[in-house]
Nucleic acid binder design. Structure first.
Length: 683
RNA sequence: GGACGCGUAGCUCAGCUGGUAGAGCAUUCGACUCUUAAUCGACUGGUCGUAGGUUCGAUCCCUACCGCGUCCA
């Protein structure tokens, strides 16, 4: 873009000094919901007009002025992280002796003016760099310098600018781009406004902390929580100022360049939303590399399903207008992927979204990303090996280590940070896991033999034992908590622990009883997986493969040759929750049809967790012959949670589902409308 | 779905078992040519989530609802 010298020396007239000066106008953008924002918007429109006039000079036509408000490019020579990498190892003397010129862009995150000079901090690609603007050397003529310094003074936090200059170090050692004309882009101004920010960024120091706003306005979250904010880490010593100390050191001993996009989050580092999503992309890339290298073909199967199959979950329903047919958003790609193996694509994988019309929790989002892969001529033992290899590999690729620091999301230790070694796996059969984590309150754990052949008996004993255990507890009710506070805080603490233990035991006992009663009614082996979830799941923090699932909960898995009530299926658990699910695929079409029918019968009998519809084309596909095949699904969001140390699935999904935030006015209008329609329909 | 917690200025937060609101940052104006949570001076900014109730009087107490969070199912 061209630059014309503006008239020098003319002081800028003030903006609005009082609210009365503030021009009355119709609301331009109704989504600005406060007077503050409306006023700010108007002020910044005014500043933008002035900046455009400074850029074009006094003789510009209205069309030129309009175009100057939003320039359409800036020929930057380097990204800020790369420029830092180039400048951080250099001392001030070195930078003076052999200047490094650069043209960069960035968002203004700090703006400090002091008369006829000023510093601003730009942020780009998650990295910050200070710029220095002096009135006497920012332009190549006094007139241009005046105009550019006027422009500098009209900048606001949040503005996106282009800056040309050479690297220097300040007195305190901070690497800084000194804005001035540079030889590599002759005749171009040292400072250009590229986009004006019309809204106020959050507090420059505290940033954006409100969790709800962070999810709803992820764009602001990404600006403010990019790992470059001014505030020290929460657990760091507040009295020290680590950044300024580092800067002071840098004169003699320059610090290595910060790498905010690759650092491993731990309880000791600050929130870095940007790094989380950069890492999520790295997870996907590593998975693709892993499967591509092993001869798997990446495929895409339908998301719109006439029959929602492949999992037990409630689907979202929709409708195709032209064909006038009901459709479901897929709950799993499984049945399509196995059709492809029938078709001779022996190794396939798909990474894409599934949709389940169920609750929202720190581990569930209605749409989530699933990896599914299928391998012909393999069984679940092969996939156990492959899984360990995959997870270890991805972790190394993404984090450079197999150690993950992770805040436990649930259970008695919820919130506690644990260290997980993703290269160190254990395997337990489901029944072994139940025995291993059999709670003390449930009495002597059963043997493998007894739990396999006498489940009724085991559940009966456990239930009785827990009832007795709870009765012995009841004396705890007699303590007076207030008295204990005064007497002995430690005793109170241990009393609280006792209460907590009793509460948990009571819940455990209640759940156990429900499982037992249900089992007595239907005699189903589903009780095994229910008990497993109740007793064992929360303890599975280190990577654990749980294998051999009851037939009753595995309608798509092959049964074990020696135990027809059990299937060749495993799930793996990390951090106390399920991350993946795999099995030797059932490929007998007759058996498969029978199992679908069983599921339909269970559904009809009121079991919400049964599959509700027969996919007869899938059965037909099996009729052509599915080779012996093993398949697996891995929750990418959950895996990413572990690899990024995120405590909620919402922290690894850019735009998690939120309830709409209705404005009061809208709400009352909606109410009126619905009242009116009720009135009409009543007539 | 249940229990508990939170909702006060654009952001981060105070607000005393009731007397219609404060701070810092940001904004606006002024000073300052190496600052860095810049500093100094002056100002501006609020339907205290929403709707009812109790009260002479409600940000505060009560009820319902909305949104978010945590735990549980």
């Amino acid at each position: 873009m061209g630059w014309q010298d503006a008239e020098g020396g003319t002081p800028l007239p003030p903006l609005y000094s009082t609210t009365e000066d503030f021009p009355k106008r119709d609301k331009i953008l109704p989504q600005f919901d406060s007077n503050f924002e409306e006023k700010l918007f108007a002020e910044r429109q005014e500043k933008l007009a002035r900046i455009a006039a400074l850029a074009t000079g006094p003789d510009a036509t209205p069309a030129q002025l309009q175009a100057a408000r939003y320039p359409n490019s800036f020929p930057f020579t380097i990204n800020v992280p790369d420029l830092r990498a180039a400048g951080d190892p250099k001392t001030g003397e070195e930078l003076e002796a052999s200047p490094i010129p650069a043209a960069i862009t960035g968002r203004v995150m700090a703006h400090r003016s002091q008369g006829k000079a000023g510093f601003a901090v730009l942020q780009q690609n998650g990295t910050r760099l200070q710029i220095y603007v002096r009135k006497d050397d920012v332009g190549s003529s006094p007139e241009q310098a005046q105009a550019l310094f006027d422009l500098y003074k009209l900048l606001d936090l949040g503005d996106i600018v282009g800056v040309r200059g050479t690297l220097m170090r300040t007195r305190t050692g901070e690497l800084t781009l000194h804005a001035r004309a540079i030889d590599i882009q002759p005749g171009q101004p040292a400072l250009v406004l590229l986009t004006k920010s019309m809204l106020a960024l959050p507090d420059k120091y505290s940033g954006l902390e409100d969790i709800e706003t962070r999810y709803r306005r992820r764009y602001v979250d990404l600006i403010m929580n990019s790992g470059a904010q001014a505030k020290p880490a929460p657990s760091a010593d507040v009295s020290s100022r680590p950044e300024s100390e580092q800067s002071a050191d840098a004169v003699e001993r320059p610090a290595s360049p910060p790498t905010p996009d690759t650092q491993q989050p731990t309880p000791d580092t600050e929130l870095n939303v940007r790094a989380t999503f950069v890492k999520r992309a790295a997870v996907l890339r590593a998975i693709r590399t892993f499967f591509d290298a092993r001869g798997y073909l990446e495929v895409e199967t339908p998301m719109l399903h006439p029959v929602a199959g492949g999992a037990t979950a409630r689907p979202f329903t929709t409708h195709h207008n032209a064909l006038d047919m009901p459709l479901y958003l897929r709950i799993a790609p499984e049945l399509y992927l196995k059709r492809l193996v029938v078709g001779g694509l022996d190794r396939v994988y798909e990474i894409n979204r599934n949709f389940r019309n169920e609750g929202v929790s720190p581990r569930h989002n209605p749409e989530f990303t699933m990896l599914e892969f299928y391998q012909a001529y393999a069984n679940y033992h092969d996939l156990m090996d492959l899984t360990q290899e995959l997870i270890t590999d991805v972790s190394k690729e993404v984090n450079g280590t197999t150690i993950a620091k992770f805040p436990l999301p649930q259970g008695p230790r919820a919130g506690e940070w644990v260290e997980i070694d993703l290269a160190n796996w254990q395997k337990l059969s489901m029944r072994e896991a139940i025995i291993k984590f059999w709670p003390a309150s449930a009495g002597t754990p059963p043997t493998l033999e007894s739990i396999t052949t006498q489940l009724d008996h085991c559940l009966h004993n456990a239930s009785k034992s827990m009832e007795a255990y709870l009765e012995n507890f009841s004396e705890g009710d007699q303590y007076d908590e207030a008295q204990l506070v005064a007497d002995d805080p430690e005793a109170l603490q241990s009393l609280r622990e006792v209460f907590e233990l009793r509460r948990r035991t009571r819940e455990l006992q209640r759940s156990l009883k429900q499982i037992f009663d249900k089992h007595l009614r239907d005699g189903s082996n589903k009780a095994y997986s229910d008990i497993f979830e109740l007793f064992a799941e929360e303890h599975l923090i280190q990577p654990t493969i749980i294998y051999d699932f009851p037939l009753a909960v595995s309608p798509l898995s092959k049964v074990k040759p020696d135990e027809p009530e059990w299937t060749e299926r495993f799930e793996f658990y990390i951090g106390g929750f399920e991350v993946g699910n795999a099995f030797s695929e059932l490929n007998d079409p007759v058996d498969q049809e029978g199992r679908f029918n069983d599921q339909l019968a269970q559904k009809a009998a009121g079991d919400d967790e049964a599959m509700g519809e027969m996919d007869s084309d899938y059965v037909r596909a099996l009729g052509y012959g599915l080779p012996p095949t093993a398949g697996e699904g891995i929750g990418i969001d959950r895996l990413t949670m572990i690899l990024t140390g995120s405590r909620s699935i919402r922290d690894v999904i850019l735009f998690p589902l939120m309830r709409p935030e209705k404005k009061d006015a809208e709400k009352s209008e909606l109410e009126k409308e619905s009242d009116a329609s009720h009135g009409e329909s009543a007539e």
